[in-house]
Nucleic acid binder design. Structure first.
Length: 817
DNA sequence: TTCAACCACTT
DNA sequence: ACCCTTGGTTGAA
């Protein structure tokens, strides 16, 4: 019997099974057919089950029915169920709907698990697993997986990539110049996503893009004029046939290029073989908006292929963070198809992995969660619903502060304390009480969530160790880092899912138990460090900022870390020691600090910035840059004294950049403000700048959806704001508005040393100058400071402060500010 | 000037 | 297809 050694590339339902694509070591693609009969289960009154059987038989549904027993996760005992095996996998969703409509009283299980995932689980394989496939003709006889998802350094098939983009979109090609480095580098090098952050691009397809199609394949670029649609179609068809790519990597493929191509192909009746599977249509999923993290997220439409992947960099979840390397890692771990992984949150991956654990255990996977939150008294609710422990930090500038963070705190808690929806407050055994809540947690059998997470935590730690010991010039290092990052994000989202009301394996009590343990553990750590003579400056959910007053030499942090680990049972690590760190006061109540606005410089000079303007995506790039450049100057200071010494230089920089801003000379694209819309255009009540801009878009025939990014420029007058997409030629920006935003950003950095807004205004706007010499960072265009400094001297201005790098003078304005 | 409603955002 | 809160702005009292 012939055996094919190859990587599992794609699987989707067709006829009485699945079409499975493999890629061999030479990059050749093989399509095989594998019979597959997925089943769903129904539980409930016998009569109903009986009726359901009769209905399915009478309709001649392609099913195999039998009575059997399966385990229910929450009941922890076998349940008598009806198994409905579906011989035509693609018809499972339809049959399930029919069954549920016919007998809604029954409880359905294993009902909505994606078929590709079910298939790979049933074959003990996973996407991109290296396999030995025995086959007869194009029929699979057996698949032996020669690969493991727990492998760190695995081989992948050589992928042929075709890039699709519009002219004027990404400045460099999606595929980097050094193609031999592999597509993974190219994917990361494709430049920032426009719109999400930073400088906006020339506007995506939604703003009426007028670009030619650029196709890159095999190291060559081909351009097709958008005017000549026939030639474009014929040219692209030729390239697809000749190169037969495995992956179409696009920018705006989902919402523009592919839909346009399909439209044209239809119009000119020129078939375009986007799919590798002949005769199948491209799968289309519509755009939608949904709630997540307390805000609306916009998910654009999708175009998915069969036998070939389409990945749209502009429509990828966290593409900039972990890229294709991370997506492949998540696909291998979760069993989900790569095209899905690329477009959904890591929460989907975690969810899929929990499903996999359940199927492996033979536990029924609930269709819809029917696990209402248990009734609680108001007081209990108050105690339980507290979230992470948050301290009010000691405001101001501090030096030689150490930050200790629990590594992957919440997932570690779930594993260590066995927190899972079926182990918390279920009364199967006396259990361990959750601190402060008293809810019993079962300890005699491992929960489904801990069982899923334990090996993940372990793999993440192994990647971290591997990255640490690899030399910087190792070519694999970057891929490992991206895979590591993917794991980090998988673990971040698993906690949210515990409390999510629609999660399959979520339960609010489990969610609360995790945060209760988190608070307990953090308090234990606090008491321990205090007992060792440290002062705690701040606590935030999983981290603590500590300082040893009067310490002459560096405290023994490794020993401290060991002690906390021993005491709490959880890993904690030294995030770093700060040269200086500043916790900011509240703007509303300046006497108290707020927990999540701080910035600091570690001993190696790297910055950690949280909550301030530079971290907000609605801050214009020009102001972000100003803040970050000022911070870069301040980061050179070795301690609080060093910070103060460098203030004049930082202020000089701000002053120069403010000068440009006030002169109206900043490029408008540097001042674009991005807001994520939370509602439909007509639902705005207040006439905010965003509402004004939205109104104009509507008038121009563009209707932004909730969750979409709206980009606009503040303009003078009652118009207030103008959408970026409607700006043509030169525009004057609203200087007053931007000056205010600018000064606020500068103020954030100076507040910790007691500079209030009034003083700042005097320095930067009033008649007290405060600037550094040229060479600190000259402003663009004219540098007014050189002649100003000379004039100041000549007119005998009083020098109020000076340092090696700067000089401050007072009296009156010297030249134009 | 005050204050509640509105809106967007971060950890 | 992941939970909750704070700061700033608007516009009416």
């Amino acid at each position: 019997m012939p055996t094919l050694y190859a990587w599992l590339f794609d699987a989707y339902p067709s006829a009485d099974g699945m079409t499975v694509w493999f890629l061999d070591g030479d990059g050749r693609a093989h399509a095989l057919h594998d019979r597959f009969t997925p089943a769903f289960y129904a539980h409930g009154p016998r009569q109903d089950l009986h009726d359901l059987c009769r209905m399915l038989r009478s309709r001649g549904a392609p099913v195999e029915l039998r009575r059997t027993e399966r385990t229910d996760l929450f009941l922890d005992r076998p349940l008598e169920v009806l198994e409905v095996g579906v011989r035509i996998p693609a018809s499972l969703p339809r049959l399930l709907r029919q069954a549920a409509d016919f007998r809604p009283r029954l409880t359905y299980y294993d009902a909505d698990i994606p078929l590709p995932q079910r298939y790979v689980l049933a074959r003990a394989a996973f996407p991109l697993a290296y396999c030995a496939v025995e086959h007869v003709g194009d029929h699979v006889r057996q698949i032996e997986t020669l690969d493991s998802p727990w492998e760190l350094d695995y081989r992948l098939p050589p992928l042929r990539v075709m890039t699709l983009r519009l002219s004027g979109e990404a400045p460099t090609s999606l595929l980097g110049p050094a193609e031999e480095r592999g597509i993974f580098d190219a994917f990361a090098a494709a430049g920032p996503r426009s719109g999400a952050e930073g400088v906006p691009g020339q506007g995506g397809p939604r703003s009426g893009h007028r670009g030619d199609l650029l196709v890159g394949v095999d190291g060559r670029q081909y351009g097709f004029k958008r005017r000549d649609s026939r030639r474009l179609l014929l040219g692209l068809r030729h390239l697809l046939e000749r190169h037969d790519p495995d992956l179409l990597l696009s920018a705006y493929g989902d919402n523009y290029i592919l839909p346009r191509l399909l439209e044209l192909s239809n119009h000119y009746r020129i078939p375009l073989p986007l799919n590798r599977h002949p005769g199948l249509a491209v799968e289309h999923k519509s755009a939608h908006s949904y709630f997540s993290y307390g805000r609306v997220i916009f998910r654009d439409e999708q175009h998915l292929l069969f036998g070939r992947w389409h990945v749209d960099r502009q429509n990828a979840f966290l593409a900039d963070d972990y890229g294709l390397d991370g997506e492949i890692e998540i696909a291998r771990m979760s069993g989900l198809p790569l095209q899905t992984v690329a477009r959904t949150s890591t929460g989907t991956g975690i969810s899929a992995m929990q499903v996999a654990t359940a199927l492996r255990r033979g536990v029924l996977v609930p269709w819809q969660k029917r696990q209402p939150e248990a009734l609680k008294t108001g007081l209990d609710l108050l105690a339980a619903d507290k979230g992470g422990l948050v301290y009010t930090p000691i405001a101001g500038l501090h030096e030689h502060v150490a930050e200790l963070d629990f590594t992957a705190m919440y997932p570690s808690i779930m594993v260590h304390f066995n927190i899972s929806p079926e182990t918390v407050g279920t009364g199967c055994c006396p259990g361990e009480p959750v601190p402060a809540l008293g809810t019993a947690v079962c300890r005699h059998r491992q929960g489904l969530v801990p069982e899923t997470l334990a090996p993940l935590l372990e793999k993440r730690a192994r990647y971290k160790a591997l990255i640490r010991q690899l030399p910087d010039d190792d070519r694999r290092k970057e891929a490992f880092q991206r895979r590591y990052s993917a794991h980090k994000w998988l673990l971040v989202t698993c906690f949210g899912y515990l409390g999510y009301k629609n999660a399959r394996f979520g339960r609010i009590e489990a969610h609360e138990a995790v945060t209760a343990y988190g608070r307990e553990v953090l308090l234990q750590a606090k008491e321990l460090v205090e007992a060792r003579g440290f002062r705690v400056l701040h606590l935030y959910v999983d981290g603590l900022w500590i300082h040893k007053p009067g310490a002459l030499r560096r405290p023994d942090y490794p020993a401290l870390v060991e002690e906390i680990c021993a005491q709490t049972g959880l890993r904690i690590e030294l995030e770093g020691v700060y040269r200086w760190v500043a916790f900011l006061p509240s703007r509303v109540e300046p006497r108290v600090a707020v927990a999540n606005r701080y910035f600091g410089a570690f001993e190696d000079g790297t910055l950690k910035v949280r909550g301030i303007e530079a971290r907000r995506h609605d801050t214009p790039p020009y102001i972000k840059e100003t803040q970050m450049e000022m911070l870069a100057i301040l980061a050179e200071g070795r301690d609080a004294e060093g910070f103060r010494a460098l203030l004049p230089a930082a202020i000089a920089l701000a002053s120069a950049r403010l000068h440009t801003l006030r002169a109206g000379e900043v490029e408008p694209r540097q001042l674009v403000v991005t807001h994520r819309l939370s509602r439909q255009p007509e639902e705005f009540r207040a006439r905010t700048a965003a509402a004004q801009a939205t109104r104009q878009l509507l008038a121009a025939g563009v209707r932004p959806s909730p969750g979409e990014n709206l980009r606009f420029l503040y303009v003078p007058g009652p118009e207030k704001a103008r959408p970026w997409e409607l700006i043509e030629g030169s525009v004057a920006y609203d200087r007053a508005a931007y000056i205010e935003l600018f000064l606020r950003a500068v103020e954030s950095l100076l507040m910790p040393v007691g500079v209030d807004r009034k003083t700042l205004d005097e320095w930067l706007l009033g008649n007290t100058g405060y600037w550094g010499p040229p060479g600190v960072l000259p402003p663009k265009g004219v540098d007014a400071r050189v002649p100003l400094l000379a004039r100041a001297k000549e007119r005998r201005f009083q020098v109020i402060d000076s340092s090696a790098t700067s000089v401050a003078v007072t009296k009156e304005v010297v030249g134009h500010w």
